[in-house]
Nucleic acid binder design. Structure first.
Lengths: 148, 148
DNA sequence: CAAAGGTAAATTGTATGCAATATAATTGTG
DNA sequence: CACAATTATATTGCATACAATTTACCTTTG
């Protein structure tokens, strides 16, 4: 009986981990058009909403650290989509902002969420249920993280 | 109005992607004790249940390809936890099985799922709801994958 | 104001992920 | 049986993730 806890389907994380990777794969055809990866798309999404962000602010929103973000942002800079500039007020801080090209592709990206849901073959209701339960747990886990 | 679709919280995938990484981080203290990573733990879990598996079978269950599994399995072999052996019947196939050490740590791992739920600070009910909605979508997406 | 302490990024090293390609073995077919 | 097509892994190359450390720059405090 008790060995049941070590089965794959019953794990807390495996289905989430697998689903995350599956969905990111579905993004590929759409993101390829823009020549960006999924994490790069997330960074751009934050910038489309907030114009300018420090590496730290991006990290807080995306739950990523500088070890991941620094090289990723350098690649976005190379593609000409963002600017990286040391703050004048505090030289430790690097401010990330959009270039014209980076701003421009927002309109091209607008259709992606809709197309993705279609590509996944799920209903709006199923999606809403999933988002609700995932967000609830994510918020709890994030809060719980600060306590540790 | 319509630009709302490009906000982070409303994305299909971001919360799942972030939650997956957060949970895997919570596994760390427990997996460190066994000196294995999370994907390595998943492979062992399949083997604890099925004794012997080909690389392909592992890939189907974990949704990973040989590009990920081959080096991962070599690392597990180096740690002395699994054996990799070409099948006699079909030399293309590599069969993965547990060593004594690999079997032995199953009992040490038995307590991990319980400890993890505790570490996440979520209730059994919340967990059940999450598992239900995630598994439902994952199954749909997996089925949908074959059609493509 | 100088030294200690803290902070923000960058760097280093290791381990995934995964697309694309290569390699080797097996199978199907004329 | 020869040979094309298929299949199972392995390899290559690139892009994350992330722990741990380093570096450079503030900030605080005696």
């Amino acid at each position: 009986m008790e060995e049941e806890v070590l089965k794959l389907e019953q794990q807390v994380c495996f289905p989430i981990y697998a689903l995350s990777r599956e969905i990111i794969q579905r993004y590929h055809p759409f993101l390829d058009t823009l020549d960006i990866t999924y994490p790069q798309y997330l960074v751009l999404m934050v910038l489309w909403e907030h114009q300018k962000q420090t590496v730290n602010q991006l990290g807080e929103k995306l739950l990523l650290d500088s070890g991941t973000l620094t090289p990723l942002l350098k690649r976005l800079e190379l593609k000409g989509l963002v600017l990286r500039k040391r703050s004048n007020i505090d030289e430790r801080v690097v401010e990330i902002s959009l270039t014209e090209a980076g701003s421009a592709i927002e309109s091209e990206a607008g259709c992606i969420p809709g197309k993705l849901v279609e590509a996944l073959g799920i209903t709006g209701e199923e999606l809403a249920e999933l988002q609700y339960s995932v967000n609830k747990i994510l918020n709890k886990v994030k809060k719980n993280k600060l306590k540790q």
